[in-house]
């Protein structure tokens, strides 16, 4: 859930700043339009260059940009820490138009797939609280694994493996989607990601069902 928390912080801060800037500009425009309604045009005396004022706002903008760059880069690095010891590895393969989840470390080499048609959506089962490393690739075109509830996505390329590390703090079920346009049934390429208590996961990975 690390991604969700970091996204929440950064999004809130940037949205608040953006909202304030927008309202300030809108307010200034409204003020200048309403102030002079019906009055005569002003005399032609104005200065079109104010170097000191301009230097001041360039400085302010630059300082703000430096803060934003540094702070968001730090948040980005916080979101991608070095992998902890022994994460659970799941091999994810996207294809036209569904997903396969393989558990290479599991005794039974469990694998989940589906057709993504109607209710036949595959479920990625993971233990809650444990770090999971998804090794993401594609069998055909570029897909993108997106879990909106976790505020995160990573592209799945053919002939290339991307890694997505996540930890789900609590048991629950989230919707996953394909975000990169991949052909006619792009819109149906959904899946579930389900976090279950570690014991239930152990039962499931040995061949049990995931109903918890």
């Amino acid at each position: 859930m690390r991604q969700r928390h970091i996204f929440g912080t950064v999004f809130t801060v940037e949205a608040a700043i953006a909202g304030a800037v927008f309202l300030a500009v809108l307010g200034l425009l409204a003020w200048t339009l309403l102030r002079h309604r019906g009055t005569r045009p002003p005399a032609a005396a104005e200065r079109s260059e104010r170097p000191r004022l301009e230097a001041y706002y360039v400085g302010a903008l630059a300082a703000f940009a430096v803060f934003l760059v540094a702070w968001t880069a730090w948040q980005n690095h916080r979101e991608h820490p070095a992998a902890g010891p022994r994460p659970l590895r799941v091999d994810v393969t996207g294809f036209q138009w569904c997903w396969t989840f393989r558990y290479p470390g599991s005794p039974a080499h469990r694998s989940v797939t589906g057709t993504c048609e109607g209710r036949d959506m595959p479920t990625l089962v993971v233990p809650a609280g444990r770090t999971v490393q998804l090794r993401l690739t594609s069998r055909d075109v570029v897909h993108s694994l997106w879990v909106p509830g976790l505020r995160y996505k990573t592209d799945a390329f053919p002939h290339h493996v991307n890694t997505l590390t996540l930890t789900l703090d609590r048991a629950g079920r989230w919707r996953g989607r394909c975000a990169e346009f991949c052909g006619q049934r792009h819109h149906t390429m959904d899946f579930w990601i389900k976090a279950v208590p570690p014991r239930a996961y152990d039962r499931w990975v040995h061949g049990g069902t995931a109903t918890v």
């Binding site: 991604q3 970091i6 996204f7 950064v10 999004f11 940037e14 949205a15 953006a18 800037v21 927008f22 934003l68 968001t72 948040q75 980005n76 979101e79 993108s144 997106w146 909106p148 505020r151 995160y152 996505k153 990573t154 975000a179 990169e180 346009f181």
Partner: peptide
Amino acid sequence: LTGIMVGTPVIDYHVTDS
């Protein structure tokens, strides 16, 4: 302003291609 948001990686990971 939303361009600055999508130019921020941690926001873009969620909203890109959406």
